[in-house]
């Protein structure tokens, strides 16, 4: 009897996901049906009755650009930090590790507030003009760094996202670095390798696919982050070369236009179609990252990937 109750609640969790997906897909269906592939390739967004046009390309663009900036900035730092936490012992490690975990607990609206009033003015005044006058002069890639340093922009949103995904990328990288067998490190050191050489030759080759997995998990977090980005990015549907101009991401656009869409069928459907895109990308990234991280574990222990799941999961977060 009691077993039945708990089973029913567990089944409820399955039902919840099914209902969520069904609700989003049914809601977004009108948009996919009417605009087809044009929804993904269109640039116009006009909810005015009779002249409706819904194209998601500027939001897909903004999401990819801010997330790419975030990953480019966060992953090297996260990997370095994870390697350091694996090296040091004693009094440095525990506080350092828990500081990083604290970063993960800060609510996104606090990041947004700080980003808006502290980080954005700092980047606008000091970093962005400097980047424009240095790497901005490089012939082709320099176009990324030219533009108006003032006001909201994609780059600032990317920096805030980098800070926000740092803890999760660090945590997952730490996990994969920790499973590299000690014997390999010791072997390399015994041959006279320096610390750098032992890490490069004994740790990184093992951890590589796990680090890629950690990156994907971070990317998934960055894609879905709403409030902090929404406060900084400007929410302007725009596609352009410069990182120093405003833009909009899928979540930030949903958050800034749901009010007007609540009572208008097609507009609402278009926002739900955006959510469908977001959810599919996030799921695919999460699944890929799990596979890659698990591959690292099985590389080391020699288990088959399928067997790990039915075993008692090890305690992580």
């Amino acid at each position: 009897m009691f077993a039945g109750w708990t089973g029913a609640v567990a089944l409820g969790l399955v039902g919840l996901l099914a209902l969520l997906l069904a609700e989003l897909i049914v809601g977004g269906w009108r948009t996919f049906d009417r605009f087809g592939l044009g929804f993904f390739l269109g640039r116009a967004w006009n909810p005015v009755r009779g002249r409706e046009a819904f194209g998601a390309l500027p939001f897909i663009f903004g999401t990819l650009v801010t997330s790419a900036v975030a990953v480019a900035l966060a992953v090297p730092v996260a990997v370095g930090l994870a390697l350091l936490l694996n090296e040091v012992r004693g009094f440095v490690r525990a506080p350092l590790a828990s500081f990083v975990d604290v970063l993960a607990a800060i609510p996104s609206v606090v990041y947004g507030l700080w980003g808006l009033f502290v980080l954005k003015p700092f980047l606008d005044r000091h970093i962005e003009p400097f980047m424009t006058s240095t790497i901005g002069t490089v012939p082709v890639a320099g176009a990324l760094f030219r533009g108006n340093p003032n006001g909201p922009d994609l780059f600032t949103a990317g920096v805030i996202l980098a800070i926000m995904i740092l803890p999760i990328v660090t945590a997952v990288t730490r996990e994969v670095v920790a499973v590299v067998p000690r014997e390999l490190r010791e072997g390399a050191l015994a041959l006279g390798a320096t610390r750098y050489e032992s890490i490069r030759m004994a740790v990184l080759p093992y951890a590589r696919s796990g680090i890629v997995g950690a990156t994907m998990l971070g990317l998934g977090r960055a894609l879905g982050e709403t409030i902090a980005v929404s406060m900084i990015v400007g929410n302007v549907p725009r596609i352009g070369a410069s990182l120093f101009e405003p833009g909009a991401t899928i979540p930030s656009w949903i958050a800034s236009s749901f009010r007007e869409a609540t009572s208008v069928g097609l507009h609402r459907s278009a926002l739900m179609a955006l959510a469908v895109v977001l959810v599919i990308v996030a799921f695919v990234l999460a699944a890929l990252s799990r596979l890659l991280v698990r591959r690292t574990a099985s590389l080391v222990s020699g288990e088959t990937p399928g067997a790990a799941e039915t075993e008692i999961p090890k305690v992580t977060r």
Binding site: G224, A275, A282, F283, L285
Partner: peptide, 8 residues
């Protein structure tokens, strides 16, 4: 569900 973006 844990990896679902919260806005979803």
């Amino acid at each position: 569900l844990l990896s679902t973006p919260s806005i979803v």
